[in-house]
Computed example of a mutant assay.
Amino acid sequence: MKFGSKIAASTATAALAIGGVTLMAAPAQADLITLCSGHGGAVTLPTDLKVPAGASCFLDGTVIQGKVTVEGDANLHVVGGQIDGGVTVSKGGYFDASDTEVAGDVVNTGSYGTYLEKGTSVAGLSAVPAEGADNDGFVFVVGSSASSVDASVGEVYVTDSRLGGVTAEGVEYVDIFDSVVRGDLSVTDAAAGGILADSEVIGDATYTGGNGPVAVGAGAEAGFASSLNYIDGDLTVTGVSGGVYVDNNIVGGDLTTSDNSPTAQVGDNNRVRGGIVTQEVALRALAAEVTAEFEAHEADLEETVEELRAQTIADALEAGPAF
């Protein structure tokens, strides 16, 4: 799970065109909006900020003392910034933040996607559908933190991050690697299942309905998943079609697997403090095609973000200074 290194390099290369003058101003006024189409540097904006429909904005070290709106089909990439309000990403829009603090929520409404990396922190992070949107958007969190994640559309991929509770219903998949969830993890009716590997859940972990594969722990696979999951509460996987794999978990509560088709494969390396209620067959090695499917999630999103970031920066630099 090496995601982030190649993308971070593209940011460092492009930062050379950004100015460095800091402007201090009075607190934001609700009726003032700064439009951004182009690039901006280490200034403090005492206003809300909006990226107009179809535009690209690249900000390096910018402080925004209001809220941010990314309009339809617009792109915003922020490096080393601060946003005192929330971020709304509209239909087809893209939000990309590296080493940035967002005090409010990031809300994706039919957006193309949001990518957070390198210590970025946000409050709530959500993805909801919008009428007429493609609704295949993504929420991608790498080495960052969010107080909660709530998604009802698209792809959810998290690695090396710290989250509050995670709730996902009707999404494409939820993949969580090498992360801590300080709350419940609930995945319902995911079209392509998901994986929980090398992670800690300080609450219950529940997978209900939808298609698989669903892999919780899933056995130690060289270069893929190498350590235990720790789940403080109950682990429940029910009503999943397409394959369920459960192994290498420490469960503080009950372990329940039932009504899955095919029957869940449950390994011998689960340590369960509570009761065990399972319909199971012995765990075979996690099939190569299953690991390949999870690995393809990462590879596809990495490629998408690399292209989006490069295009956003190029378009913003071509547009010239934003303010």
Rank of each mutant, 00 (worst) to 15 (best):
K67L: 09
A53K: 09
L228Q: 11
T100P: 03
A225Y: 00
G19P: 09
L45H: 07
D234K: 11
D99P: 00
N108F: 03
D84N: 12
G38L: 04
G183V: 10
G41P: 01
D204T: 08
D178L: 09
A287I: 10
D175C: 10
K118P: 00
F294L: 12
L16T: 14
L16K: 15
E71V: 04
G183F: 01
G86F: 10
G219C: 08
V21Q: 07
A74I: 11
D247M: 07
G193T: 09
D136R: 09
S179R: 11
T312E: 04
R309N: 07
V128N: 07
V149N: 01
H39I: 04
G203L: 11
A97D: 06
G19H: 06
A9K: 14
G242E: 01
E200H: 03
D315K: 02
V79F: 06
G233E: 11
V180L: 11
V139H: 01
G203A: 12
V290N: 06
V89H: 09
L59V: 01
E307N: 14
V21L: 10
G194P: 00
V106D: 02
L16S: 14
Y173T: 11
T120H: 03
I250E: 14
D198P: 00
V156Q: 07
S226E: 15
R182H: 05
A133D: 06
G233N: 09
T114I: 12
E306L: 15
K118R: 15
E289D: 15
E289M: 06
L286G: 06
V156P: 02
P321C: 02
T238I: 13
G243K: 08
A222Y: 00
G193E: 02
P262N: 07
G143Q: 10
D247A: 13
F323S: 11
S241N: 13
D105N: 12
T88N: 12
A190E: 12
T47L: 05
S227L: 05
N270G: 04
Y207A: 05
L45S: 09
I195C: 05
V180F: 01
L125F: 11
T22Y: 08
L163I: 09
V214G: 01
V106C: 04
D189G: 07
T69C: 01
G194H: 01
V102Y: 02
T304Q: 14
G209Y: 05
V158D: 09
I7S: 12
V141N: 08
H39V: 06
V128L: 08
E318M: 04
G193F: 02
A17G: 04
E172L: 13
L16P: 00
T206V: 14
P46M: 10
N211R: 10
G239M: 03
S186P: 00
E303Q: 12
N229M: 07
Y157S: 14
I313D: 07
K67T: 15
L49M: 15
T208Q: 05
G274A: 06
L45Q: 06
A264Q: 04
T11D: 09
A74D: 03
T62P: 01
V244C: 09
A25H: 03
D160T: 11
P46R: 10
I18L: 13
V201N: 04
V106Q: 03
A282W: 02
G72C: 04
A282D: 10
V201Y: 03
T238S: 14
T11Q: 08
I7N: 04
A287Q: 14
V43G: 06
G219V: 11
A8W: 00
P321S: 03
G113I: 05
G104R: 10
S199Y: 06
V141K: 08
L283Y: 00
E303H: 05
